[in-house]
């Protein structure tokens, strides 16, 4: 594979920085280095929580012309991610998706799909397809 198309970047958002880091690490080990996976979690004081500005930074780091897929765990992780997306430049916003998938399994599925150079819509579909499995 000489040419590498831009791959969708991933952002992992969890209330726990350990969960976010571990999820990113697991996806990277299982799938490989082709996909940029950025993690963020925890509040600024080191406790549980999520932080809009950290999510904004994570999206910037993961940014790819192919777009960014965000995996979130619970409640605030999703609403803060939505706010972070809204703070992105308008031309980026339709290339950022918050996926409706469990954070760990969804991250691995999304990374596996993204690694092949699949578009954002396919990455989203693959991670969300997981929910429909028996």
């Amino acid at each position: 594979m000489s040419q590498s198309p831009p791959t969708v970047g991933l952002v992992i958002v969890s209330h726990s920085s350990d969960v976010a880091r571990g999820t990113a690490e697991m996806a990277r080990q299982m799938v490989g280095d082709e996909v940029t996976i950025v993690h963020c979690g925890g509040d600024p004081d080191g406790g549980l929580g999520t932080d809009v500005s950290k999510i904004v930074e994570a999206i910037d780091q993961a940014w790819s012309e192919a777009g960014v897929a965000i995996l979130v765990d619970l409640g605030g992780a999703e609403t803060n991610s939505e706010m972070a997306v809204e703070m992105q430049p308008a031309e980026r916003q339709d290339r950022i998706r918050i996926l409706n998938a469990p954070v760990v399994e969804g991250a691995v599925m999304a990374a596996a799909e993204a690694a092949g150079g699949s578009p954002l819509s396919a990455v989203q579909a693959t991670a969300e397809e997981l929910m429909g499995q028996p």
């Binding site: 799938v31 490989g32 596996a112 092949g116 150079g117």
Partner: peptide, 14 residues
């Protein structure tokens, strides 16, 4: 299982 499936599908997509 998980890792073999990832490897197989990644390879197939090439």
């Amino acid at each position: 299982h998980a890792r073999p499936s990832v490897k197989l599908t990644k390879l197939a997509k090439q």
